[in-house]
């Protein structure tokens, strides 16, 4: 099969005509949409709080990793009991996001 064969096949695609009731159906859908209450506003405040929580967890994970390599500074020692659970939570979060993203990346590639 040559590129010319592909061109010919793709150029020859006949358009379909909308069914007779299509315009009326669109009119009804638009009227329904216009009559509907305005959509809920995007929850920016919740998003900001969630992002802040993620940052705290990520920072704790970083501190945990650093503290494993070197002792914590005196001022940070009070946080030590919190570091391990938050660090594991951060690691779980990162792994979950990576696992969610992986299939999408693979689909795009192949």
């Amino acid at each position: 099969m040559t590129l010319d064969d592909l061109d010919r096949a793709l150029r020859g695609d006949e358009p379909i005509a909308p069914s007779s009731g299509f315009a009326a159906s669109v009119r009804a859908a638009v009227a329904e949409d216009a009559a509907a209450p305005p959509p809920l506003r995007f929850p920016w405040l919740r998003l900001a709080l969630g992002m802040a929580a993620c940052l705290v967890v990520a920072a704790a994970g970083t501190l945990l990793a650093v503290s494993a390599a070197a002792p914590l500074a005196v001022g940070m020692r009070a946080l030590e009991p919190l570091l391990q659970p938050l660090g594991y939570a951060g690691l779980a979060l990162v792994l979950s996001l990576a696992l969610l993203r992986l299939p999408v990346l693979l689909m795009r590639r192949f």
Binding site: D13, P15, I16, P18, F22, S25, V26, A29, V30
Partner: peptide, 26 residues
């Protein structure tokens, strides 16, 4: 309508779905 349904058809090759997608686009 002709163009939007036609374009939707090229993306799905299914008339009912094409009309549904075109309606959503409108």
């Amino acid at each position: 309508q002709q163009r939007l349904v036609g374009l939707a058809w090229r993306f799905c090759r299914d008339r009912a779905l094409a009309e549904d997608m075109a309606q959503e686009a409108f």
